[in-house]
Amino acid sequence: MKHRRALRYGLSILALIVLAPAAVLVALRMPAFGDQLPAYGAIVNAHVPYMRQATNVVTAIIFDVRGADTLGEEFIFVAAITGLAVLLRGGRGEDASRKPIRTDGRRLPARSEAVALLVRWMLPATIAFSIYVMAHGQLTPGGGFQAGAMLASALLLLFLGDGYRSWRQVTPPIVMQMLEALGAIGCVGVGLLPMAFGTGFLENVLPQGEPKSLTGGGLIPLFNVAVGMAITGGFVNALVEFLEETRQPEEGES
């Protein structure tokens, strides 16, 4: 054990020595706040708003101009959640109980009615705001990733207010896994849709809609929703795996 710890420390120090100079150089060479935009940024700012009727240029870059990069990042996220599930689930198997773990000398706190009431007010409001952020990603700051993280966090409120059993009933893992998978498939499907019309991958083929409206953005809103589904399902699946470590093991489990 001590040998492994020393090895981890050694690798961490080596990585720090190798990467620290590059990080310092990047920080020193960053343009000052308020400097003139580089040519790439100026071109995007000049053309994207009227080409896609998207007032949030950042989202237009992520889901349109550099949409292929975002697709790759999405599958990195899916692979990370899969690795987490394989790592944690391997020790306990596929079955899951809904009994909280009991440890000698540790008292389980009683359910707080005040916290439960607060959660029941906050949960629907947070879910509604998450959907708002997802739907308006091409118009205002936000988008599928931010909305998905918010939605998963909103569902976690149920665990804080009503406990693990209620939370698991609302977020069954099989449903969350299907949501993540459908979101990832949807990201690819949005990219392949234009190819059915003889154009390039992720090239817009939908009407641009009206400026500053939910109908604007072409393919951007569809890509946005697919990412939101994948992120929501992925984060909830991660929370399931972590919170499963707090439950009482079933007979035959370690």
Rank of each mutant, 00 (worst) to 15 (best):
V44Q: 09
L87Q: 07
A42G: 03
G34Y: 00
R52G: 03
M51T: 06
Q53P: 00
Y50P: 00
G93D: 00
N45M: 10
F77C: 03
A54K: 06
R89V: 08
S12E: 02
G10T: 01
I62K: 07
V44K: 08
F75R: 09
T59M: 09
I76A: 15
P38G: 00
A20Y: 12
T59R: 08
A15L: 13
R52C: 02
A85N: 10
L25P: 02
V24D: 06
V26G: 05
G72P: 11
P49F: 08
F63S: 05
G93P: 02
E94H: 10
A23Q: 08
A46L: 08
I43S: 08
L28S: 09
V18G: 02
V18Y: 09
L87K: 09
L16E: 02
V86G: 03
L88A: 10
P49G: 04
V86F: 13
V24P: 07
A54L: 05
Y40R: 11
Q36G: 15
A20E: 05
T82Q: 08
R52D: 03
Q53Y: 06
D69E: 15
E94K: 12
R89P: 06
L16Q: 01
E74A: 11
I13R: 08
L71P: 05
R29K: 14
V24M: 12
Y9R: 12
L37F: 12
A79S: 01
R29L: 14
F33H: 13
A54I: 04
N56Y: 03
F63D: 04
A68D: 14
I43C: 03
G10K: 02
S97V: 10
R89E: 14
G67W: 04
G67Q: 03
L25F: 13
M51S: 06
A68E: 15
H47D: 08
V44C: 06
L37R: 14
V24Y: 13
A80G: 01
L71H: 14
N45D: 09
F75L: 15
P49R: 07
F75E: 14
Y40N: 02
I62G: 00
E73S: 13
V48D: 01
R29F: 14
P49S: 04
A54T: 06
E73V: 02
I81C: 08
T55Q: 08
A96G: 09
F33P: 10
G90L: 07
T59A: 11
A42Y: 03
I62S: 13
L37N: 13
A68T: 15
F77K: 06
L11R: 05
A15N: 00
A32F: 11
L87N: 10
M51F: 09
A85F: 13
F75G: 11
A60V: 00
P38I: 02
Q36N: 14
I13L: 15
D35S: 15
L88C: 07
F33C: 09
T82R: 06
S97P: 10
N56I: 01
A54P: 02
E74Q: 10
A60F: 04
A46D: 10
D95V: 11
L84S: 13
